[in-house]
Amino acid sequence: MIKVNGLYKKIGQVQALSNLSFEARDGEITGLLGPNGAGKTTCLRTVFGLLKPDEGFAEIDGINVADNPIAAKQALGLFPDPFGLYERLTPREYVRFFAELSGMEGAAAKDATARVLSQLKMEEIADRRCKGFSQGQRMKTALAQAIVHQPRNIILDEPTRGLDVMSTRVLRDMLKDLRAQGHCVLFSSHVMQEVAALCDRVIVMARGQVVAVGSPAELCAQTGHESLEEAFIQLIGTDEGIAA
């Protein structure tokens, strides 16, 4: 469970977050939907304790990120944007390194790495260096890194950007599996289809604030529009920065 409460954050002259509060529950896929520049990435970075909020707090499974960052991060997995791969390492080495970094013992990390690599059908590329990987292969490596230590909460920043159809499907199936296992999945996106197809709950963000919360159907009902796209545009009051 990820909870943020009354977050304010000013970056330079820009008020990136202003009184942002929401929660993402276990066993659900929560979408953080907003136009470019709405503060999605700032919000996620605050959840990881990389940015310090001017006011407010973020909690992971009830642990305050600012008070106990190590314990909070232990319960988190991050699928970052951009991926941050080490080009000279193989996926097996890369994933195992992050597994150990997240606190797994050597042998357990090795097993968990092998398991997640086969789960994502990556055996063929598992021992090739990441240099020269396709976008889809990179995505899988990053995803394996995010879930290898079986964190209760998984955060994905713009996960489908630049992916082809096949890779997007792999990602979607994986997220649905994680939901079925009771994980809390939070992902940010500005792609409507993605959110409509996957999310149990959508948090619509604009100008650093939450403007609406609900399932895609609820959001449509709330605004009286049939498509989520129309509903979304009405909610944020503009159609700038949205991908259909």
């Binding site: 970075r45 990881f48 990389l50 960052p69 190590i70 314990a71 991060k73 232990q74 988190l76 991050l78 970052p80 951009p82 991926f83 941050g84 791969l85 080490y86 080009e87 992050f98 970094l101 997240s102 606190g103």
Partner: peptide, 14 residues
């Protein structure tokens, strides 16, 4: 430059 610094710091590592 490879964007892995923020990823590292997102892990339980002081």
């Amino acid at each position: 430059e490879r964007n892995s610094l923020a990823l590292l710091l997102s892990h339980p590592l002081s």
